[in-house]
Structures are given as C-alpha cells and as structure tokens.
Design a protein around this nucleic acid. Structure first.
Lengths: 159, 159
DNA sequence: GCAGTTGTACTATAACTACCAGTACAAGCG
DNA sequence: CGCTTGTACTGGTAGTTATAGTACAACTGC
C-alpha cells in the first residue's frame, strides 16, 4: 500500500499516518494479516523520525486495528464487515468488535462533524448522499482489492 | 443556550466551545441573529481564560458561522438549510454558503471518520442508520426550538 | 461627556505536545 | 552470530494550549 503524508498539513504527522492506515483497511488495501512497513522503513521513506511512526503504530494498536509481535513486525488485526460474499479463506483472525465506549466516542465525533455540515447550510440529503458515496467507494475498493488478490497473490506492502 | 465543557477531555477547551456552538446552530438552539454570550461571561462561567473563549469565537468567525461587531458582541451568522416550511420571517441575514475548499476539507474529515467506523467492522447499514438518526435529531431539535420561539419570544442566551 | 459594555491586542509565563536525534535493548529469524 | 523487529530511553527544539493581567477602540445608554 502506498501511503502519502503532507508535512505542511495542520494535522500531526503521526495522525496522518494513522488515518491513512485506517482508510487503507476500510478500502481493503490492507487486509487482516497484512504486514505493515517497519517503522524504520516508513521513517526513512518520509524523512521523519522513527518515534513519530512508532506513535502512529501505538495509536493503531490501542484502537485494536493492528497487532504487533515485537520481532515479526505489525500486522493488520481487524477487517471491515463484508456482508456480501463468502470470501473463501477470509476471517483469518478474530475480529473481536470494538469496545462500547470507543464506539460511543466515535458516534460523538461523527455527530460533531455532521453538525458542522448542517450548521454550514448543507442539506440533509446532500450529507447522506456524501456519506453513501464515501461508504460505497470503500466497499467498491475492497471488492477491487479482492479481485486483485485472486489473480495475483501479491503482498500489500512492498518495502 | 446552555453550554457545557469537560476540562478533563483531551479535546482543547476552545475546540469544545466551538463544537458546542456548532452543534447549537445545527440543533436550532442558536439561530441567525442570536447573541452569543460575551467572552468575559463565558470565561467566568467556566473559570477559564478570556483568551481561550476569544480563540473559540475567532475560529467560529473564520468559519463564517458568527459575525462580530466589536462593540455589540457576536451573533450567529449562518443557519441550517431548512428544506421544509416557509419559516415566515426567516433568513434574517444572508447565509452565503461556505467556501468550496472548506467544504472539501469537511468531506475529507467526514471520510476519515467514516473509514474509522468501517475499519472497526461497523456495517454500512449501521453507519448510515447512525447518520440518519443524528441528522434527524438535529432537525427535530430545530423544529422544537422553532415552536418554543413562537409561543414565547425568548432570547437564546441569558447572561 | 461619561460610564459601561463589547471584542481585541499585547506581554509574559507555565505546561504540554509534536517532532527530532541518537542510542540502546530484548526478542525472534535464518 | 548477524539481521530485523518493536520499543525505550535521554535530550533537545519548536509550537500549542491555557493562564494572568493590562490596555485600548468603539459603540450604547444616560
């Protein structure tokens, strides 16, 4: 998976890294068991500090999205709920659903973002359309990534 | 409007204030022309610094949500798009729709939050349901606030 | 004009965060 | 053993958050 970050953004570097990985999982570019690039590799790739990458991985681990085995690196630990298709050898590892309070916090955060759109005069229909389009983009991307794997068993992370 | 903030939250105080005002506008508790509490009043109410409240107002102004006339205080400058009902003497002031790039940034932020839910295994249907419920809560709240105004012409901000 | 209110600007300080640099270590793999 | 892995540590720089206190320009009401 190709990650890009913007050093000029007002969003913290480690936060951007974390966001890209989350989006990668949502979009299917990163699937359960996939290896994440070593902290040193990512740090060198972006010319940033190892500790910054480590902090991003720290965050992802605390969110239960990746699991890390000290010597073998970090791997994706959670997958989007794919309602369609039996996905043959899927569910390599237990998903485990996230913590209730974590979900509550997520709902709160979602509500705040939605309130922003509403306050700015965005119509409800326009908002739901944007949400639907975004979710559909994710599932379509997952579908596409799925097909890729079937034709060529490639790794998601060339480093 | 009754605002509450959590000094123990990891979210910055000025950000919380800004979020509450945004949600107030989305929920109709704050409407176009409504006066916001003076910075000194809010600062005293929460036992925080004037500059902190000023920063929140600064943010809201830069987002075009409030307009400020140096001596008369800050007032709400933007209203949710109410698709239903003629709302009689509504649209007291021009709404003006937000900047295109600002909207793009909002869509990006929304996508990141949605990705988080998807990555955590939340089903698309569950997400859209949450979004719909949140949007409905806002519009219902607006409706309610609207009725309140009709029966008793109260100010939104008693200070 | 005067008193009061409003948002804003300024300085200065303390605490915390983000990021960096370098080094070091424990644990597993080949 | 050599290599890679994540992690931990110290130390430093810069920026942000929040504080305190003072001050000012502009408008309202008397």
């Amino acid at each position: 998976m190709q990650i890009e970050i913007d050093p000029l953004s007002d969003v913290a570097l480690y936060q951007q890294l974390r966001d890209r990985v989350v989006e990668g999982i949502a979009g299917g570019e990163l699937r359960v068991g996939d290896q994440l690039a070593p902290v040193r590799t990512l740090a060198a790739q972006f010319g940033i500090n190892i500790a910054t990458v480590g902090k991003a991985y720290d965050l992802l681990r605390s969110e239960g999205l990746v699991r890390t085995n000290r010597t073998s690196g970090s791997v994706v630990a959670r997958a989007p709920h794919d309602d369609a298709e039996g996905t043959g050898p899927a569910a390599l590892e237990g998903v485990g659903a996230w913590d209730g309070s974590a979900r509550d916090a997520w709902v709160r955060r979602l509500a705040t973002v939605l309130a922003e759109g509403v306050a700015q005069g965005e119509q409800d229909a326009a908002i739901t359309a944007t949400v639907d389009a975004t979710l559909h983009a994710f599932s379509a991307s997952r579908q596409h990534a799925n097909d890729e794997r079937k034709s060529q068993g490639g790794s998601a992370d060339e480093h």
